[in-house]
Design a protein around this nucleic acid. Sequence first.
DNA 1: TTAATGTGGACCGATTTGGTACTGTTTAAG
DNA 2: CTTAAACAGTACCAAATCGGTCCACATTAA
Lengths: 160, 160
Amino acid sequence: MFRMSKMTDYGLVLLTELAREEGSTRTARELAEATRVPLPSVSKVLKGLQTAGMLVSHRGAMGGYGLARPAASIPLTQIITALEGPVAITECVQHSETGEPACELESVCRVRGHWRVINQAIHDALGRLTLADLCAPTPRVERLVGLNMPPRSASPGGLS
Amino acid sequence: MFRMSKMTDYGLVLLTELAREEGSTRTARELAEATRVPLPSVSKVLKGLQTAGMLVSHRGAMGGYGLARPAASIPLTQIITALEGPVAITECVQHSETGEPACELESVCRVRGHWRVINQAIHDALGRLTLADLCAPTPRVERLVGLNMPPRSASPGGLS
DNA sequence: TTAATGTGGACCGATTTGGTACTGTTTAAG
DNA sequence: CTTAAACAGTACCAAATCGGTCCACATTAA
């Protein structure tokens, strides 16, 4: 799986819509109609992004949401982290980043160190992209995300 | 989050343990004791890996599980796919790989194409690793997983 | 004053997840 | 032939998570 939650997906779609004209202010209802995302979910997601400092909100009539910073200075990792917690493929990876209490298998676990590395690679690939990149055509993303790795020198299998 | 499920984590730990001496046959109980993973979960995971063709099983007394192929020819992506389904960060990514019925936002969604690319990057990074690599020291994994991407040319933000 | 709008929380139903139990079936060893 | 060890399959359960809804409230422009 490796799935993002739907809320995170919604968040990206909404932010992309907001970033289409930077500096503009859109109402939650407008965004819901433009993206076809159910309004209550839109509200919940936008509220979260505002708390995380990515959006500014104006209450009352004529209010709405707008980007707090230029889209090019909002990394994907920050959005994902705000909406569904730290990017960590394993619990123990998260623990080793935040605090100490690792898992109870720590003493016998021989793969933990590798997860840290793999997780870092994914984190870096996502961190190279910003919200502005999500509004750009696909080829730009292909380049930035690092799809051009050399195949491994001596691969016995090669299955996928 | 981006988490693997606990079962997948268990699977990797168990396979790594089995790969420590290739060709050996270990009993589910032995593996449970060696890895401290609860026995019922061990059984469930191993059975799944056998069905997927990564393990061979021998029933009856003196039975047990063994690797069906050399560890170096079992890619990480195959293990993950067997234990928790296809690697796809979004539902729509999975749909576009398997069949046609995309999500209902398809017509207005402007980020879908990008997910395909990002997903491919993650998939490739994991596909470059095999079970044998998980038994090797960490530096080898660092190299194979592609941690050495150049920083983007003009990064306005750089936050993480 | 009023209507539009965000804020915050409670709540619910569905699904997933991790774990358990039980009843087979196979096979080596005695 | 009997028995105990081991895998196979299924059903089930409790807890957590997720997506979604609703409501009472605070704020602000008109």
